[in-house]
Measured scan of single mutants.
Amino acid sequence: MEVRTIKVFTTVDNINLHTQVVDMSMTYGQQFGPTYLDGADVTKIKPHNSHEGKTFYVLPNDDTLRVEAFEYYHTTDPSFLGRYMSALNHTKKWKYPQVNGLTSIKWADNNCYLATALLTLQQIELKFNPPALQDAYYRARAGEAANFCALILAYCNKTVGELGDVRETMSYLFQHANLDSCKRVLNVVCKTCGQQQTTLKGVEAVMYMGTLSYEQFKKGVQIPCTCGKQATKYLVQQESPFVMMSAPPAQYELKHGTFTCASEYTGNYQCGHYKHITSKETLYCIDGALLTKSSEYKGPITDVFYKENSYTTTIK
């Protein structure tokens, strides 16, 4: 009895394709271990004539594949690729409408935090270190965002349907971005203890939790000093293409032309909904596939993004 075979390709990165001759009487799992086709788990399936010449994702289970996976995804987590594939199996079914010149995501599976993050990423200057993220990001900007969303979920250790947080998501993504040249110098002034300067680099240099107003941050924000008295913390120097200011959701007025974009969060910790506000020729609110415009805006804002380049204080 002759062994019926077909020729397929296996890959971990969709760049390096490895030619395989597979036995049609055995499952993919018996031949390769966990195997995925377009995100779908085909591990328990036997090869079919229609699979001839198709590319299958496999887990990096030998040295060659491990090197290829690390170079593309910059992670050695053995569960990463499987999590990416199972997320992709959902995100490829989502709709990605162009809204006001940006790629958004039609609401499904509690994905409003991903839509808000995706919209924000198209408006701030950011370059990702893992080629996987950078490639998928370019495709997302062009309207094909399924891979990018699935990668975000995998890097953030999230599953489809789980509630997510924009600030946490951005923080994970910033860790995989090139923020080497970003720098922030802060000064804390206390009447009792004097003053202390701190220099922050990388992710810490672009994120701040405690106030939404970048102007206020430049002037000074009140913080408790270690001595128990009130101290003032203010920005001395900022070198970065953008800054992200966050605070627990509270009524906040966004003035046209003073910011790049913002995240609105309605609801409580267990259950809520994100919308995205962007400042173009007027203010726009993007909620999944829905767009509304207004000249002014007041609502429960939790993150505001500002364009920056270089700032030095005039406070002496």
Rank of each mutant, 00 (worst) to 15 (best):
N268I: 07
P34W: 08
S181L: 10
S213N: 11
K93P: 04
V58K: 07
D13G: 06
Y113K: 01
P241E: 07
P78R: 12
G143M: 03
P60L: 05
A132D: 05
L37R: 13
S295V: 07
V67Y: 15
V99S: 07
Y172W: 12
Q251T: 10
K229A: 12
M170Y: 01
Y73D: 05
F56Q: 03
I152K: 04
L121E: 01
G202L: 00
C261R: 00
K293S: 14
N187M: 14
L186F: 15
D77Q: 07
K229I: 08
K44W: 10
C193S: 03
S50Y: 11
S79L: 13
P300L: 13
R66A: 14
K93H: 12
N129S: 09
K93D: 15
G164K: 04
G220E: 06
E71I: 07
S310Y: 15
P248N: 10
I152F: 00
K298W: 11
T282V: 12
S171L: 09
H273E: 01
L254I: 04
L59G: 08
Y306Q: 01
L126F: 09
N268R: 12
L17W: 10
F32A: 07
E68S: 07
T258Q: 12
T198L: 12
Y57F: 15
S50I: 13
G82E: 08
K92G: 06
G228R: 03
M245K: 01
L118K: 03
T169C: 11
T76Q: 15
E264N: 03
F70P: 05
A136C: 06
C182R: 04
Q270M: 07
K307Q: 15
A205C: 03
Y57E: 05
N129F: 05
L59V: 15
Y311S: 08
K280H: 10
F174L: 11
C225W: 01
G53F: 11
Y284R: 01
Y269K: 14
Q216G: 08
N14M: 13
N14A: 14
K127Q: 15
H90Q: 11
I45F: 13
V221Y: 08
P300M: 14
D23Q: 12
V12E: 08
Y138Q: 14
E281W: 00
N178Y: 04
V12T: 07
K191W: 06
K95Q: 09
L59R: 10
K307D: 11
K201E: 07
Y73W: 04
D41H: 10
T292V: 11
H90S: 12
G164P: 00
F56P: 04
L200T: 11
I105V: 07
N111R: 03
A115W: 01
I45T: 13
